[in-house]
Each structure stands twice: as C-alpha cells, then as structure tokens.
Amino acid sequence: MKIAGFGVEAWLNQYETIATTDISQSSIAALTIGEVAALDGHDGQQFYQHLSALRLNYGWIEGSPEFKRLVSGLYTQVPAANVLQTNGATGANQLAIYSLIEPNDHVIALYPSYQQLYDIPKSLGATVDYWHIEEANNWLPDIEELKALIRPETKMILLNNAVNPTGSLLDEGLLRQVVALARSVGAYVLADEVYEPLDGTPFTSIADLYELGIAVNSLSKTYSVPGARIGWTATQSSELADIFRKYRDYTMICGGVFNDQLAVQILQHRDEVLARNRALVDRNLALYTAWVAQEPRASLIAPHGISVSCLKLNLPVDDETFCKALLDETGVLLVPGSRFDIPGHVRLGYCTDTETLKRGLKLLGQFLRRYDD
C-alpha cells in the first residue's frame, strides 16, 4: 500500500517540540490532568480515588457504558450501542474508511481539508474526486459541483465539518442537500466533526440527518484533551456499527481504562469545559481579529467560534520558506498553508492560551516588517 506523506502532521512532528511560541495548533488550550480531576468539585479527590480502584486490564472494549451513554446524548438519533470508542478522530476516520472502502470504489472528498479523508481512500485503491472549498465563497463549497461529481456508483462522500484549516462550517441547509444527493445513490456520508463551533452558531451532526451518516468526533479539539486520545464513531445504523466492530478488532482493541475514565469525566462536566473554552475562544478571537485589522500583510475569513483559522499572508516568498524562517529566528510556529494545499496562507492556532497568542502575534508582526522595504 502506498500513501502520500501527511503534510501537516509531518511538519508538526518535525518542529512543534522546538518551538518556543506555538501558535500552530488546532486544539483549544489543553487542560491539565489536575484541572480535569478537579471537575469533580472536590479538588480531584473523588476522581483520583475512583481511578486508584480501577484495574488496568483491557477494560470496556468499545468504551464503558457510561462513555457510550454520554456520547449518545450528544445526538438525537444515535443509540448508545452504536457508539464505538476509537483512538482519537484519526482512529475513527481510519476505521470507517478501512471498513467500507475497497479498490475501484468512487468517493468524493471535501478539498482541501484534513488529508486523511482523501489520501486513505486513495491508498486503498479508490477513485477520489474533490469537492472544492473556495476562498471567494468564504471557504465553502458549491453544491452544484457536488451534483456534477456524484455518480450512481459513488460509495462515500467525506466531509470535514467544520473544515481544518479554514474554520468554515457547512450549515444544516447545505448538509441536507448533501444527504439528498447521497441518498439518491445510496452513498455513505462521513463527517469528521471535531471542530464544533463555540459561539452559538447552530451545528447539526450528519448522524442525526442521515441513516447512512457516519459522525466522527473526539475530545481533542473542542474539549481540550488531545492527550486523552479518545474519539468515536456514531451512527443511526446498527448494521454499520456491526461492520465497524469487525474491523475495529483488527485496528484498536480498546482505548484504555485510564483514557476512558478521563473521557467520562470530561463528558460528565461538558458544560463547565465548554464554558471555559467559549470564554477563551471569544477573548482570543477578539485579539486576533484586531491584530489582523492593523496588519497590512494579513487578511482573514474569521472562523465563528471554531478553534482553527487560515490566515492569508501577502509575502514575496513561499509560505513554507516563511514559516521556517519565522521559527528559526523567533521561535514562533505556524503551519504553512501548502501543507493543506492552500499556498500563500498559514494555519494559525489562535486558541492557545492568551499570553502565548499575544506573544506570537507580536513576534509575527515584527517579523513581517522585514518584507515592507
């Protein structure tokens, strides 16, 4: 099996550990284990006592009953039995694609977005057509292009909603049009939904709209615990869940007792975590957009409470050369847009802690001045 190098992950693997000011990430500033434990309202004592009594065996293979119940409660049409725990959203995407896509299948992928969603199907021998997002359309796709791409034999449509790295959101109206096209040919629709908006913008999961919809999510982005490595697939269809179960036995076994209980703690206190993160997103987005407004070399289609952004830079050098020089000379880390096939842009993770964002924007602005002469 041949597969392309994973652009964004290869960049971060190489450089994120040496950055002194990391404003490249797409998660909201991570919680500490102590902060997660303290959600119990007793300075973590109840949580730690609970953990200390657990045996570190394989635990619940598909996720504990409480985990499955809590995740099911995030949807309106997904029973707990159809929730399967995975190793993050990347594991969930891999599981669903690996379970359903075969050589010579035809799939359609939103592009550019998260590279997994088109390069894994390609590696399996599928024919992949791109449904393009357009900067001129606020980084949204045109439904007419999808109508032209879909075939009677189309097996799957793969979406990233909201989109990484642009932060653009496919609303319910557009999703319903996607579902109507998919249903007309019996195609699955997979949506990686890890970037849910936090500003009150309505969000609808594909799993609640379509009987062949596959929702993928995790605790890594909106919930601020990427280190827990817990994600899931969620479907209306018990038949689909059973297909995933078979392939899951080959790829994961379990998520781990400790990780599962961290996930349960987060989901039990979801409202508190989201309130913390909503305040951080609002505060940081205001700082970020104010900086963009006064920076002559930058422009932005601002995300709506979504923890990822795609900043356009007017530069006389390519974005990868710029990002490497910026890191070498200032310690500031961005992701070149070319790593997402969006040259001339960078992914800027504005949802880091506020002080890091302030420092990163200041250093970035100072570095940009060298191109003014």
Rank of each mutant, 00 (worst) to 15 (best):
A241D: 02
Y247A: 08
Q261V: 00
R276Y: 08
V292A: 03
A290Y: 05
W291V: 01
A302G: 06
V264D: 00
L274P: 03
L300M: 03
Q265D: 02
A286M: 09
R245L: 14
V273R: 01
F258S: 01
L300V: 02
V292Y: 03
N277H: 13
D260M: 04
R283P: 05
A290M: 06
D271H: 09
T289W: 00
A293W: 00
Y247C: 12
R248I: 03
A290N: 11
A275W: 02
I301M: 05
A302H: 02
I266Y: 00
L262R: 01
P296F: 03
G256A: 06
L280K: 08
N284P: 11
A302V: 11
Y247L: 14
S238Q: 12
R276W: 11
M252Y: 12
R245K: 15
Q261H: 10
K246A: 10
V281P: 03
D271R: 08
L267T: 02
D249A: 15
L287N: 13
F244Y: 14
G255S: 05
L285R: 13
N259S: 12
Y250I: 11
N284L: 09
D249C: 10
M252A: 12
R297A: 15
G256S: 05
D271L: 06
Y250D: 13
T235S: 09
A279V: 08
D260G: 07
L280T: 01
C254M: 08
A279E: 11
S299E: 12
A241I: 04
R283D: 12
R276M: 09
E272I: 13
Q268P: 01
D282L: 13
I301Q: 10
I266W: 03
A293F: 04
E272N: 12
E272T: 15
A293R: 06
L240M: 15
D249M: 13
R248S: 05
V292N: 07
V257T: 14
Y247K: 14
W291L: 05
L300A: 01
K246S: 08
A298N: 04
A298S: 07
K246N: 02
A279R: 12
D271K: 11
L285E: 11
I301S: 09
I266H: 01
L285C: 06
I253F: 13
A275C: 03
G255D: 03
V264I: 13
N284R: 09
N259H: 08
G255H: 02
V257A: 07
I253P: 06
R278F: 05
P296C: 06
R297V: 05
V257K: 04
L285I: 14
I266R: 01
D260Y: 03
A263R: 00
Q294P: 04
N284A: 12
A286F: 07
K246Y: 08
A263M: 01
T235N: 10
S299K: 11
A241N: 09
F258C: 01
T251Q: 15
D271E: 15
L287G: 10
A302D: 04
Q261S: 08
A263K: 01
R297P: 04
Q261T: 01
A263S: 07
I301D: 07
D282Y: 06
L240E: 06
I253R: 14
D242C: 11
E272V: 13
L267F: 02
Y247S: 14
Q261E: 10
N277F: 04
Q268R: 15
Y288R: 07
A241V: 06
L285Q: 15
R297K: 11
T251H: 14
